[in-house]
Simulated scan of single mutants.
Amino acid sequence: MRFELDDDQRDLAAALEGLLGAADPVGAARAWASGDHGPGLRLWSRLTDLGVPSLATEAGPVEVAIAFEALGRHAVPGPWVEAAAYLPLALGHELEGVATVALPPLVPYALDADVADHVYVGSTPAGSVGERVGSVDPTRHLFPVAGEGAVDDAAFDLAVLAVSAQLLGAGERILTDSVAYVKQRRQFGREIGSYQAIKHRLADVRIALDFARPLVLGAALGAVPASAAKVATSDAAYLASRTGLQVHGAIGYTRELDLSLWLTKVRALVTAWGTPAHHRQRVLASLVDADGGR
């Protein structure tokens, strides 16, 4: 079966790309990392006006996947998975303002609880917010919260789909920037992109992302488990980040290079909303159940 986006979905993708392409999300991400939430909150407001937080309840998983791939491709900061994927479905309605949630032990910390208007544990408002803990991604501000709440399975799977789409978008951005770099970086009198070893590495990333994309769409359509999409996109985006770092050489290790925003985000998202091992176990369990336990 070949799946294609309909006109409304293509319009959503184009609108998001147009908004984010002109909004300096990289600047907002860098400011967010430093503790200045102003640019990120203004971007949050613009995306809210576009209807991103209501997609989970008023559109569907495909639209959620489209939106989160764009958020990942542009490194948009903030607790979007929590506020626009998990909580609207778990609570049955969209929340005003910025919202975040923790689901211990799989999601042990509430992302950006310091700036959120609503902080939940499961579907229950959190009792208190603790001191910030570190993250490999400086744009992710993690906080322990007090309280107990049950996990909504359908909302959790939608959040996993959203993270998967973010990883896909981030991987695509890293690949795009890496290809552009190897075309202009010269060594020994020729573009480094002309060397077979680099071509093969980038081609491997292209193949991995192309194999992951159908699983994201399949999960959005309910044809495959969301965990399968998370495993595939985690592997593909991590390969993209390693390859991007290698082809950029020493400059790839610097925070001044925008590439660092996606490298650290991928590293954090790989284990966010369940580790790869957890999701592989879920896929295995679903296969065993489908086979009747044989």
Results as ranks from 00 to 15, higher is better:
Ala75Arg: 12
Pro125Trp: 02
Arg206Leu: 11
Gly274Phe: 00
Phe156Glu: 02
Leu167Pro: 00
Leu167Cys: 01
Ala110Asn: 01
Ser164Phe: 06
Ser123Pro: 11
Ala220Met: 05
Pro138His: 01
Asp157Val: 04
Gly249Val: 04
Leu5Trp: 12
Asp24Cys: 07
Ala116Gly: 07
Ala229Pro: 03
Phe3Thr: 14
Val247Met: 05
Val145Ala: 00
Val288Tyr: 11
Pro225Asp: 03
Gln281Ile: 11
Pro144Ala: 02
Ala240Thr: 05
Gly35Ala: 05
Ala232Val: 09
Ala22Arg: 14
Arg185His: 14
Leu106Arg: 15
Trp273Pro: 00
Ser45Lys: 13
Thr124Tyr: 10
Gly18Ile: 06
Ala110Thr: 00
Trp32Pro: 02
His278Thr: 14
Tyr120Asn: 08
Arg242Cys: 13
Ser164Ile: 08
Thr139Ala: 11
Gly127Ala: 10
Asp157Thr: 09
Arg73Phe: 11
Gly18Lys: 08
Leu106Val: 14
Leu209Phe: 08
Ala22Pro: 09
Ala126Pro: 02
Leu161Phe: 04
Arg73Asp: 04
Gly40Cys: 08
Leu221Val: 03
Pro138Thr: 01
Ala232Trp: 01
Gly171Ser: 09
Val101Pro: 00
Val182Asn: 03
His118Lys: 07
Thr48Asp: 14
Val224Met: 04
Val136Met: 09
Gly72Arg: 02
Val81Gln: 08
Ala22Met: 13
Trp44Pro: 00
Val133Tyr: 00
Asp177Gly: 12
Glu58Phe: 10
Gly78Trp: 00
Ala223Leu: 15
His248Asn: 13
Val205Arg: 06
Glu191Ala: 15
Leu55Gln: 05
Gly127Asn: 07
Thr139Leu: 06
Tyr109Val: 00
Ala59Gly: 11
Ala126Arg: 03
Ala212His: 01
Val224Gly: 03
Arg267Phe: 11
Trp262Lys: 07
Ala31Gln: 04
Leu168Met: 10
Ala212Ile: 01
Tyr195Pro: 07
Asp204Ile: 07
Trp273Phe: 15
Arg267Cys: 12
Phe68Tyr: 08
Val64Arg: 02
Phe3His: 14
Gly40Leu: 06
Leu202Glu: 05
His141Pro: 06
Gly193Leu: 04
Glu82Ala: 12
Pro39Asn: 03
Thr264Ile: 09
Ala65Met: 06
Phe143Leu: 05
Ser123Lys: 14
Val231Asn: 06
Gly27Ile: 07
Gly35Asn: 05
Gly134Asp: 14
Pro88Cys: 07
Asp24Ser: 03
Leu287Ala: 14
Arg132Lys: 12
Val26Asn: 10
Phe68His: 10
Ala59Gln: 13
Met1Val: 14
Ala180Ser: 14
Ile174Leu: 12
Ser178Leu: 09
Pro77Tyr: 01
Asp204Lys: 14
Asp8Lys: 14
Arg206Ala: 15
Ile251Arg: 12
Gly149Trp: 05
Ile192Phe: 05
Val160Thr: 13
Gly18Asp: 09
Leu168Gly: 07
Ala84Ser: 15
Ser194Leu: 13
Ala85His: 00
Gly222Thr: 09
Lys230Pro: 01
Glu17Ser: 13
Leu209Pro: 06
Ala170Tyr: 08
Ala277Ile: 11
Pro138Gly: 03
Asp112Gln: 07
Leu87Met: 04
Gly38Pro: 09
Gly60Cys: 06
Gly127Thr: 09
Gly18Pro: 03
Asp6Leu: 03
Pro108Arg: 00
Gly218Arg: 02
Asp114Asn: 11
Ala99Gly: 09
Ser227Ile: 04
Val119Ile: 10
Asp117Ala: 13
